[in-house]
Nucleic acid binder design. Structure first.
Lengths: 184, 184
DNA sequence: ACCTGAACACCGTTCAAGT
DNA sequence: ACCTGAACACCGTTCAAGT
């Protein structure tokens, strides 16, 4: 059987979702595809690049249309889409955040947020600061939430995991700050 | 030579700072101490626990007195202390954030932030939401900043790394949101 | 109590050789 | 172009045995 890069990425996501990030090794993935580990390096230069591709694919699969017209409602939509996309696969948040940290892929959400803040009439420097703040909030919240969800499903007794309500309230804090500057 | 747990942690920080997190293996650390890898397991149950201890020690070393009296100024002080503590060692932010993510140690900053927000007269649920938002902001910003600093010092040309100015402006966004709720 | 020596079950990556 | 087979240089962790 002959594979393409997209087959490798798809299978990587399947392994990630079923067994978790710590089990997603190049050797394990190769075995899953019925191929020698060295064969993977024909489709992907290294594991880091593969994980970046996995992150991008997770975000692509989570894409949805944005209907909001006001810039601040669109920010909430983009952030919610990002959160839902990461939560859709086991350890998805960890993978996306790591890719973003290393500057590999996962750039789409940042671009959408920047565009929304610019539409809001914010000055360039505040667009930058705001975009980063929103992204860090969504990433931090979602990694924590997914951690708690997975711990709970593994039987560990845990307090309520934050959830979508706390998520939006954290967002509103930053949006309040931004809105107070848009008219200033 | 006989070692104690604190010797192991101290040496781990030295290795971290000099060679980076990816070089901080149990085997490498053992070699650095002139001991067999298995000897480390008399002082520490596993690597995860060691890294949590490293995170806590990094935060302890970065401790400083807080002089601000207003709650919002104290928030800024706590956040700046946290950021500086993590930046003081190579990959320090990554280590502290990972420990916090896995719920191992790194709990002090959260407690200090909670106390400050409570002093501000915020209701309990907003104290929770605000603490998490501030923590995620500081963590996200500092990991990104440290990444950029290390990339720059490794010769990669990079745009200005955010720095303390952007850091405080992101913070102010959330503080604006919180302040608008304290009188409401 | 603390350490050694040896082993177990893995990693990511490279590279000559095959088809 | 894509894959195999074998190797290189590592991992974290366990455990009997020593002092």
């Amino acid at each position: 059987m002959r594979y393409h890069r997209s087959d490798v990425v798809d299978r990587a996501i399947a392994v990630l979702d079923e067994y978790g990030l710590e089990s997603l090794s190049m050797r394990r993935l190769a075995a899953e595809l019925g191929v020698q580990p060295s064969a993977l390096y024909h489709h992907v230069p290294n594991k880091q690049t593969l994980l970046a591709a996995v992150a991008d694919e997770i975000l692509t699969r989570g894409k949805r249309p944005h209907r909001a017209r006001e810039w601040d409602r669109r920010v909430v939509e983009v952030c919610a889409e990002l959160r839902d996309a990461m939560l859709a696969y086991r350890d998805g948040a960890e993978v996306v955040v790591t890719a973003h940290t290393f500057g590999l892929g996962a750039a789409e959400p940042a671009n959408q947020l920047r565009a929304a803040l610019r539409d809001g009439g914010l000055p360039d420097d505040l667009v930058d600061v705001g975009t980063r703040a929103l992204l860090h909030l969504v990433f931090g919240h979602t990694v924590e939430e997914q951690m708690a969800l997975q711990a709970a499903s593994a039987g560990a007794i845990d307090r309520a995991p934050g959830g979508p309500a706390d998520f939006e309230r954290g967002l509103e804090l930053v949006l309040d700050g931004l809105r107070s500057k848009v008219g200033g």
